Amino acid sequence: MKTELIIRIAALFGVLAVIFGAFGAHALENMLVETGRLDTYETAVSYHFYHTLALLAVALLGRLYPENSRLFTSAWFFIAGILIFSGSLYTLCLSDVSWLGAITPIGGLAFILGWMILLVSFGKRNPS
Rank of each mutant, 00 (worst) to 15 (best):
S69V: 04
N68Y: 00
E34Q: 15
F72E: 05
A25L: 08
A59K: 10
C93H: 12
V97S: 02
V18G: 05
I84N: 04
I106L: 12
L71G: 12
A44V: 01
I19G: 06
F85V: 01
T91W: 03
L92H: 07
P127W: 11
Y90W: 09
K124V: 02
I82F: 07
V58Y: 07
S69L: 01
F23M: 12
L56E: 12
V33A: 12
T52M: 14
A27L: 13
T43Y: 08
Y41N: 08
S69A: 13
D39G: 10
L5P: 00
I7E: 08
M1Y: 03
G81V: 01
L64Y: 12
T35Q: 13
I117N: 06
P66I: 09
L32C: 11
A110D: 01
L92G: 04
T73W: 12
F49Y: 13
A11T: 09
L89I: 05
A11F: 02
T52D: 07
G62A: 10
K124Y: 06
T52C: 14
L5D: 01
M116Y: 14
E29H: 15
S121P: 10
L12R: 00
P66L: 04
L12M: 02
E29M: 09
R70E: 00
L100T: 02
D96M: 13
T40S: 14
G107S: 02
L92D: 01
L71S: 10
Y41R: 08
L100A: 08
A102W: 02
F23T: 01
L61R: 14
A110S: 12
F23E: 08
L55W: 01
A22T: 09
G62Y: 01
Y47K: 10
L12A: 09
F78C: 04
I79G: 03
E4D: 09
I19F: 15
E4S: 15
I84L: 07
I82P: 00
R63A: 14
I84H: 09
P105N: 07
V18P: 00
P127V: 05
A25T: 06
G108H: 04
N126F: 10
R63D: 10
P66Y: 06
W76R: 14
V45T: 07
H51Y: 12
A80P: 04
L71M: 05
P127H: 06
E34V: 05
R8N: 05
Y50R: 13
S128Q: 08
I103N: 07
L94D: 06
S46L: 12
L60R: 14
L100W: 06
A80H: 01
H26D: 08
A54M: 15
G87F: 03
R37Y: 08
I84C: 11
L61S: 11
P66M: 05
L83N: 07
L109R: 06
S128E: 00
G24L: 04
F23R: 05
L38V: 03
L60K: 13
S69F: 04
H48N: 11
S86K: 08
A80N: 03
R125A: 02
L60T: 13
P105H: 11
L89H: 09
G87K: 03
E34N: 15
A10T: 00
T3F: 00
A102K: 10
H48P: 01
L12I: 09
L28I: 02
S98G: 06
